[in-house]
């Protein structure tokens, strides 16, 4: 077996540091995911609402998020807020703000898509049966929307977890940064450590995202 430099992970607290870095990444992404899902549903309803003002506003918001790379948003919030308002936001808080800002827009668009995908005749049939608007949403629209949303939302959530690797640019030491630190600290003694360490990082990301996929599969089956 080729030398993959796994021994560097056994040195000192390296493995614990790597797991700590994963913890940081998960903390940022999970808080952002929770905020994004909550606000995303509200934004999604607004996007689907046939009101020209709400459509225009949400459309603008979505386009801003789409055209701005997350990297730029991170710099804008972390350094820009200090320049503009003198706020000294921590890297972690800036990351949560940016990821929620991004996640809410994308989640909103997913909710809009799911709501739009319910055919108009279902509303009409329900109203014809004498259901109130609230009942239509509660018994007809919502169950179908949520089921259609799950796979899309999972894609977004796992993407948010993986994108946390960008926060190293604003001084937050997360799993990828720790792995680079370990590789570089052992550049001379274990030149091949990059392979082993990145392999472990791959497995850690997998371990973080796989349970979410499993949960999604379970929910999709349960709510069929």
């Amino acid at each position: 077996m080729p030398d993959l430099g796994f021994e560097v992970l056994l040195k000192g607290k390296n493995m614990a540091r790597l797991l700590g870095g994963l913890g940081t990444a998960m903390q940022i992404s999970m808080i952002s995911v929770a905020i994004s899902i909550f606000l995303g549903i509200i934004v999604g309803i607004l996007m689907a609402w046939k009101n020209p003002i709400s459509r225009a506003v949400t459309r603008c918001y979505l386009e801003i998020v789409r055209i701005m790379p997350q990297m730029v948003l991170l710099f804008l919030v972390y350094f820009g807020s200090t320049r503009a308002f003198g706020w000294n936001l921590s890297g972690e808080l800036s990351a949560v703000i940016v990821f929620s800002f991004w996640g809410t827009a994308e989640m909103g668009d997913l909710v809009r898509g799911a709501l739009d995908s319910i055919p108009a005749h279902q509303y009409e049939s329900a109203w014809a049966l004498g259901l109130s608007s609230g009942q239509v949403y509660r018994y007809i629209v919502l169950p179908q929307t949520v089921r259609r949303l799950i796979p899309l939302a999972i894609n977004l959530i796992t993407r948010m977890i993986k994108t946390t690797s960008l926060v190293l640019m604003i001084g937050v030491v997360e799993v990828l940064k720790v792995s680079q630190q370990i590789i570089e600290a052992n550049r001379m003694s274990s030149p091949n450590a990059a392979f082993g360490v990145y392999l472990v990082v791959f497995l850690l990301y997998f371990a973080a995202c796989w349970p979410i996929s499993l949960l999604a599969g379970y929910l999709e089956k349960r709510w069929r």
Binding site: V43, I45, V57, I64, A84
Partner: peptide, 24 residues
């Protein structure tokens, strides 16, 4: 009511984001 509330939330977020861009 929920919709009205949501419009305000989004409008506020948008305003903040624009302020951040312009302010930078």
């Amino acid at each position: 009511i929920l919709k009205t509330f949501a419009v305000w939330v989004v409008a506020l977020m948008l305003l903040l984001s624009l302020a951040a861009c312009g302010g930078a």
